[in-house]
Design a protein around this nucleic acid. Structure first.
Lengths: 215, 215
DNA sequence: AAATGCAATATCATATACGATATGGTCTTG
DNA sequence: CAAGACCATATCGTATATGATATTGCATTT
């Protein structure tokens, strides 16, 4: 039985606060303040913040301190989606080629999670659940594509975290579910080109839906 | 004058030791050992190692410690090049569209650096110089493509570091220079599709040249 | 001789301490 | 009254100390 390290716990708790916008973009993150609040010493807080910095979720200014990363700019948003379009459709194609009935089944389950699931109690938890499920679905496809480098690169960009923060106040549409369904159809048919196209279409539409958040 | 932080210095010095294979893949990296050796306390060493861990250059085992990341496996190598092929040719195309005479000029200079330059004193420094210049050239193109997300994602994969470690004992060919030249020709002509093709070709050939390192 | 248990050592994880620097408000001065 | 100097506080960056855990080697036993 290993005692999970304090650093991991601190990292996770700060991550959640950032994700839930409890710590808003730009807010300061004083080390000893967090240490007192989480009832640990400064050392693990320091290390957790260093990790979050490398992940791009917080920024550090020498002799000034850490602060939560600002919201995505329009350009960063564009860049992020261009990146996804370079990588994810191709990964969907590859996933299609690697697909086994068992893997497909797991993917279907993952997609189903998004539609049903317990009714949310409030706006916040609902969006959170949706974002989590969507991230899970895309993640599943990347795992099937079996390219750890690509998966890591996307994970490092924290696509879904940023998107969640953006869509926090926007509407969750039924469209995304339908697009996922079209992707699944391509997978079921074993049509790699169709999977590529469906993923491309899905991401482009997702981009256009979210672009409204900048108006 | 800025008081460069000790953490930065420690990070850099360890990075160089990893890059130069002075610390071989798999070697242990004891915190207090490094602290004594570099004549600093453990705290900055800890933070530097945490950064290197996020960068994928060292691994950490809870209650055991840090160690240098192992060499790329054949699969990781394949994945890395598949990733590059998804991203860099498209970036070359975009760079071509963004190109101005001034930017092209800088790129030409960058490419020229690779060919001439002072004669190396030994194998090690020669490869190091080549690897650095090659990294610089590709980096320059990504900057022109002006997609910071993509650039960061590639940087995070430490493509050129891994490649250098692989090619440490292999031959540096003239071919790479010729491929860069073909890329430049496409840029000069303003032919985005040709730039895409040339970059694709260059990376695929680079992959095939290095694949020998696994035999 | 091989295996097992135990002690010694190396190393980590965390806590705490302290000097250094930035920031913000107040006070002085022109 | 405005502008600049100065001090107090917050916070960082680094160092050091301490308890906990893993690893290693040796002794003991079978």
């Amino acid at each position: 039985m290993r005692p999970a390290s304090i650093v991991d716990g601190v990292h996770e708790r700060i991550y959640e606060r950032l994700m839930s916008l409890e710590i808003p973009p730009g807010a300061r993150l004083p080390i000893d303040g967090l240490a007192r609040e989480l009832d640990v010493s400064q050392t693990p807080v320091r290390e957790a913040l260093a990790r979050l910095e490398r992940e791009g979720l917080v920024r550090k200014a020498h002799l000034i301190g850490y602060s939560a990363a600002p919201q995505l700019t329009h350009k960063q948003f564009d860049d992020l989606y261009k990146f996804r379009l370079m990588v994810e459709p191709e990964s969907a194609r590859q996933a299609c080629l690697n697909l086994t009935p068992e893997l497909l089944h797991r993917l279907e389950l993952s997609a189903a999670d998004m539609e049903k699931g317990e009714q949310p109690v409030d706006r916040n938890s609902r969006y959170s659940r949706f974002a989590r499920a969507d991230a899970q679905f895309h993640e599943e496809i990347l795992k099937i594509a079996d390219n750890e480098t690509v998966r890591q690169a996307l994970t490092d960009q924290h696509v879904h975290l940023h998107i969640f923060r953006l869509m926090f106040h926007s509407r969750v549409t039924q469209e995304a579910l339908e697009e996922h369904e079209r992707l699944l159809e391509a997978f079921r048919a074993g049509d790699a080109d169709a999977a590529h196209a469906a993923m491309h279409d899905h991401i482009a539409r997702s981009r256009d839906r979210l672009a409204a958040a900048f108006e």
